[in-house]
């Protein structure tokens, strides 16, 4: 369950203050006041970003391209240096962790980085020997993500979606404690995306902590226990998807009903006594043809908070 702190919205320039850090001792993954500026850039890509993820939770990082999502992930996986702020895994500062830390993480990159002349199976096996401990069967994993028939084909012959699945499978193979998934369903058809979502849920069930970076609000809504909206390198909002929708949406339903042969559509607000009475009356009369709740989508909330489209 997300904590009370995680259940609050934060102002665009108001990250979690570091003085609260001691209260997060139970948190498994803490990010505190993270800042980063690329060499030669005019402005920081990430500004004082703070959040935490409890064991076995999926944390959805939402934002348009260039918002700083991937930069945060790169800092957390040490692909970029930690210029300002701190990242702690089970209370262990990232800066002090040795190479063995990398055996605990699995990373699925948005842009597939594969050995093109090796087969899909060989790509999965390539670095597997570097990871101590048990791991899943590579061929079975390929079957799972729908690449069983292409296991012995060279990666250079894979389509973009197939490469994406191969990179995803590779990230999970050594059963990492922390999973970093960058746009895992990007470019996938809906059926395959559902398989990927199911696999992520399975890893969540086994206790993996997941940082999901995406601009697909449906995926984030389905999987995330907590979501953060990232805009211009800052966290614009951080909460559970349900809480965000309740806070920024309307408690209303849109009803289509037929009276005297005429189809009528109207929005009824659940906080209005007359509307509630009207809804009861329509329900009792059996005249309702369609009924839709009017809660806000994460996409709409993002636009409301930042003025930008999520998929931009």
């Amino acid at each position: 369950m997300p904590s009370r702190r995680a259940g609050r919205n934060l102002p665009a320039d108001g990250p979690i203050p570091s003085r609260h850090a001691s209260a997060y001792s139970a948190a498994v993954l803490e990010v505190d006041q993270l800042s980063f500026q690329y060499p030669g850039a005019d402005a920081p890509a990430v500004r004082e970003v703070s959040f935490r993820i409890e064991t076995g939770q999926v944390f959805g990082f939402l934002g348009p391209s260039g918002a700083g999502k991937t930069t945060v992930q790169k800092i957390m996986t040490r692909l970029l240096p930690c210029q300002g702020g701190d990242v702690r895994y089970d209370g262990r500062p990232l800066r002090e962790l040795g190479r063995s830390f990398f055996a605990e993480i699995g990373v699925s990159f948005e842009h597939p980085n594969l050995f093109p002349r090796l087969t899909g199976l060989e790509n999965l096996e390539a670095f597997l020997g570097l990871y101590p401990g048990e791991h899943d069967d590579p061929r079975a994993m390929l079957e799972r993500v729908g690449l069983g028939d292409a296991a012995d084909n060279k990666a250079e012959d894979y389509s973009k979606g197939m490469k994406q699945r191969l990179v995803f499978a590779r990230a999970l193979l050594h059963r990492p404690k922390y999973l970093f998934l960058d746009e895992p369903t990007s470019g996938l058809d809906p059926a395959t995306a559902r398989v990927i979502i199911a696999i992520i849920e399975e890893h969540k069930q086994r206790g993996a902590t997941v940082l999901l970076t995406t601009h697909d609000m449906l995926v984030a809504d389905t999987l995330s226990d907590t979501v953060a909206f990232l805009h211009d390198g800052r966290i614009a909002a951080l909460d559970t998807p349900r809480q965000l929708k309740l806070e920024h949406g309307q408690r209303a339903v849109k009803v289509e009903h037929r009276r005297h042969g005429v189809l009528t559509s109207e929005t009824l607000f659940l906080d209005d006594e007359d509307d509630r009475r009207q809804l009861s009356s329509l329900t009792a009369a059996g005249e309702i043809e369609t009924l839709h709740s009017q809660e806000a989508t994460l996409d709409a909330i993002f636009v409301k908070l930042t003025g930008r489209e999520l998929a931009a």
Partner: peptide, 17 residues
Amino acid sequence: DHGTIRWFRIGPGTSWD
């Protein structure tokens, strides 16, 4: 060129390996 160096970097292998 293939980006596989980034893949290596997020694994337990060292520069010396």
